[in-house]
Design a protein around this nucleic acid. Structure first.
Lengths: 344, 344
DNA sequence: ATCGGAAATGTGAGCGTTCACAATGACGGT
DNA sequence: ACCGTCATTGTGAACGCTCACATTTCCGAT
């Protein structure tokens, strides 16, 4: 393999000058820079990342951390992992732009285990930045560890005090807006099937849902909230019960696609037409929703964009820029056939 | 950060002895080994991968290469990327088991570009092994580059001469078996909507499909083949035309889910009931198929298992074991409601 | 011509490992 | 007690880069 020394020799300069050229450092004569660049190209020289890291302390690696249980569960269930997929998309694209590489790892949820596992990974890899996704983004012990090791950290789906890089969307506003949208369509009896309360975004959405109902001057029982667990079966039970009420809800918001599918399924079984007598909206928008019958309207987290932003800020941080801050990204609302006007 | 030297000092041994312990080398007294291991744990020592790579030539990195166009297209279309997702699952799980890390990269399709891009990535990362997925697994220039750099390489979905690590499933047999299954159900008029002919697996499946028809003693026109492009629209056109034939096919096999969805869509539009008068099978099985109406029967590539196997063999190769060879993995056939008996 | 200072370039050291080899220790056989 | 052998441990050097600093070159002002 050709090293920096080979290029230096060929160009008749010292390795440090070649190093300056690669790193776009100042104080290199234009003529020399060109000559070196040509040689780099001609010899096919590619700087060795390990050596760069040894010499200069930068690894050109960004570590993206996901929750093991949640990720594996999706995989094992054959359910796919759109979140992971979107992360990869946003992360890789941005990393590539800056000559960085993305390494994806899973760590467990428990506080102690998580810290130990993260310590191991950053010890081995020495990434220039770490992306924490829910629920790890809410784990202060992990953030403390990274702070102590002076590794910049970006939290996804979490809004802190501005001392770190926080990238998120406004879950509450999204829930509020979609609820207002349904109210404007004439719905007066709404249901929200939430996920587990431990899920921060879920709590925020419930707030938004309730807020919209209250602000519209409607009685509290115009909108009911039930906690599911993101699973089909549980949600199906909740839906069956809800549809049996009198008056029955004319619109249901589900916290994720699987539960929204349960709504469609039960509605079909009970002879309730969607969207004619029941409107359905989901808070996830995995690829499958386009093929459900009818296709689901959904609010989608800007996952790829969030990870892209996180990478961008982390790389900036590694380059010495000040980059902490709170970055709110807009969500997408994708209206499809599962939503329609309320009762006359 | 604590280094090997710190551990050595604390244990009262030399760094080389600590190195032997970490690498499970021979010739270390049990008592010393224990003492060192305890200290490693106590001090939280984690070997620095960059330094390891500098000293010993091993990077503990596996590089997984995917096709950029195909991957990005899926992402941009909001279609998700089950393949990538499955790769990650199988790859990470296996890498983690051996203290390895998986790095995922995209490269373009053209021969020259691909070689240049791969050269850049392996130059920077110096991975201990590279996984090539279709269509790169069929690109000899890439394999030659890796051979020249002495980096072990695993090809997914391709069967070579045994000089490399090839991991694949028998596409032809899968197609043959599903066709035979349809014939056994009484279908006598079958259609195969293939992808683009440049896709090797697609060609193999066509062979299997035709083989089954012929072996059953049926005339060639009992099974027709049409080339689509994996896209909904094109497939929809093909299906509309096919269903208008007399006699119309009673079973259609599609090369991927999107085209299978097109079959369902057109059938519904034309008033053809699935599975009553038309059976549908897909060759992909992304998560969404479970939610289609009716759910699609499908043959699924053992993607995660293939990548897992590839990683396992690559890591073995990096550890000095002989590991080249051809590894055929079993596919899965998932029968769902889209398939039924043929006409009486 | 001379000098000062900035721009351009070069030099030694060090990053944390492993390698190849050297040195020491232990143990059994004579 | 002594030697050979093997097991165990230690020692420089090297890997390919960047850092901090030293040196040289250049240019305009005196």
């Amino acid at each position: 393999m050709v090293t920096i020394e080979d290029v230096a020799r060929a160009a008749g300069v010292s390795r440090q000058t070649v190093s300056r050229v690669i790193n776009r450092g100042p104080n290199v004569k234009a003529e020399v820079r060109q000559r070196v660049e040509a040689l780099v190209e001609a010899l096919g020289y590619v700087p060795n990342l390990s050596a760069r890291r040894m010499g200069g302390g930068r690894s050109f690696l960004i570590l993206a951390v996901n929750d093991r249980a949640r990720t594996l569960e999706n995989w094992r269930a054959g359910r796919g992992n759109d979140w992971v997929d979107q992360m990869l998309y946003g992360g890789m694209t941005e990393c590539e732009r800056h000559g960085y590489h993305l390494v994806f790892e899973l760590i467990d949820t428990g506080a102690d285990v998580a810290v130990r596992q993260l310590a191991n990974v950053i010890g081995a890899l020495r990434p220039d930045g770490v992306i924490l996704t829910p629920p790890h983004s809410e784990n202060d012990a992990l953030v403390a560890l990274l702070d102590q090791r002076a590794i910049p950290c970006a939290r996804i789906g979490y809004r802190g005090q501005g001392a770190h890089i926080d990238v998120y969307m406004d879950e509450r506003r999204a829930a509020r807006e979609i609820t207002e949208h349904l109210l404007a369509l004439g719905h007066r009896r709404l249901g929200f099937i939430a996920g587990t309360p431990s899920y921060g975004a879920s709590r925020a959405r419930i707030e938004g849902f309730r807020g919209a109902i209250t602000s519209a001057g409607l009685p509290d029982d115009a909108g009911f909230v039930r906690n599911g667990d993101f699973k089909f079966e549980t949600a199906a039970g909740i839906v069956a019960e809800a549809l049996a009420q009198d008056p029955a809800p004319t619109a249901i918001i589900a916290d994720n696609d699987e539960m929204a599918f349960a709504v469609l399924h039960v509605a079909d079984r009970e002879g309730v037409r969607v969207p004619d007598t029941l409107s359905v909206v989901s808070f996830e928008d995995t690829p499958g929703v386009r093929f459900s019958v009818p296709p689901l309207s959904a609010i989608r987290q800007p996952t790829a964009a969030m990870i892209e932003k996180a990478c961008e800020r982390l790389i900036a941080a590694a380059s010495g820029e000040a980059s902490a801050g709170c970055y709110e990204l807009p969500y997408l609302y994708l209206e499809r056939a599962s939503i329609g006007p309320g009762p006359p």
